[in-house]
Nucleic acid binder design. Sequence first.
RNA 1: GGCCCCGUGGUGUAGCCUGGCCUAACACGCCACCCUGUCAAGGUGGAGAUCGUCGGUUCAAAUCCGAUCGGGGUCGCCA
Length: 438
Amino acid sequence: MISHLTGRVWTDDLSDRVGERVELKGWLHRLRRLAGVSFLILRDARGTAQVVVQDPELVERLARLQNESVIGVAGVVVAEPQAPGGVEIHDPAVTVISEADEAPPFDLYRPVIKAQLPTILDNAPVALRHPRRRAYFAIQAASMAGFRSGLHDLGFTEIQTPKIVGSATESGATTFALDYFGKTAYLAQSPQFYKQVMVGVFERVYEVGPVFRAEPHDTARHINEYVSLDAEVGFIENEYTVMAVLTDTIASMLAAVERDAAGALALLGLELPKVPQPIPDVHFLDAQAMITAATGEDLSNEPDLSPANERWLGEWAKREHGSDFLFVRGFPMSKRPFYTHPDPERPGFAAGFDLLFRGMELVTGGQRLHRYQDYVDALVGRGEDPENYAAYLMAFKHGMPPHGGFAIGLERWVAQLVDAPNVRETTLFPRDLNRLSP
RNA sequence: GGCCCCGUGGUGUAGCCUGGCCUAACACGCCACCCUGUCAAGGUGGAGAUCGUCGGUUCAAAUCCGAUCGGGGUCGCCA
């Protein structure tokens, strides 16, 4: 069976095979009929190839096929300056592997799909075949690979933690409840507790997996199921250790995108951002003060940054530091979850950070509490019963080092990277308030 | 969830404010034919929508009003 795969020639290999007779397989991207010659554009997972068809009978056969029919083309690779990419297939024999029943709802062979986002999403199984859309997900795949390899190289171990959990983890964030053999269970909104527990095992762990948020938000940057790139590391000095790991990780992701998704970058005409060493950082209070000084907006009672504030800071970082990235440290403890470690020098503020990427919150991270008694105090202080967190707290009762970590929103990362105005564009099959299918 | 906006053939739009000439227009796709090299090909012709749904106003509604369903933007919140 493997020989069927290894014998396959991809469209992006043709320039190395001039003069050879090869067999391509793929989709009928477009047939351009002219009087004396016709051009069949075949698309496979790697790109497209131009096939020159002169036999009138073959043209007639092809003309009866709808676009997206699956075909095999055997022919000779010829160097031809007039052809897109400099090579084309001559003297073709075409086999129809699987005929498409209908024309696609929109043209896949145009530079961009001319349809609105809801139409594109409703037709995702076809829309994703468009080279530009496919490029987004090639970048996504490369980003995940870079996240994994970067952390692996730093001695991290990949883990997989349960997505069906018995109790709503972080109070506040809304969870999806489900029936679990007659008991109520929840879809995990974060691997937070488990990855911390696993620091007691591997010291350095990461996870790539889905998280579920039942918040009824309906914005261009929220979806209800997304991929979280999580990491957690033990024996840190403070949040700056975590920020350094994150900075390395982002750099690894970008390096992987540059290496593995070069074709996608070229197609999209993208320039990758540089990761400054170190990424500039600003304290929450200083950030607010700058915004107030610049805009006159009174933020003195705001415990958080608004999307508009984040955009302002993104522009500031670009202007003042030439950076697409900016750390904002020291958010008020009141807005952070109970496991957050306070800044020893400013106890009302967290030893944690958000990473803004081009003016959007991309990552949240920081140092966590690590002493059992601190957890009990934090929970009681928030009116929660530590008993409800017994399994989680067991790790701390039995000794945990100072540790911290972060979580990157994968779809947001790609959306910012490719300058997509809506995170749904960089989600294969987005789940939101109104969309459960496809 | 609050506020704002939108809903016209397969797709994207025009028309709506200033009801009637709309038996609804344009572009792309689709179908037919033409054109020795296209590459978002080009040309000619054709099919395809009773204008989200329900109700109201009016001699007359895609166009005005109400309800309802669907969608978009923004804010809260977050990744």
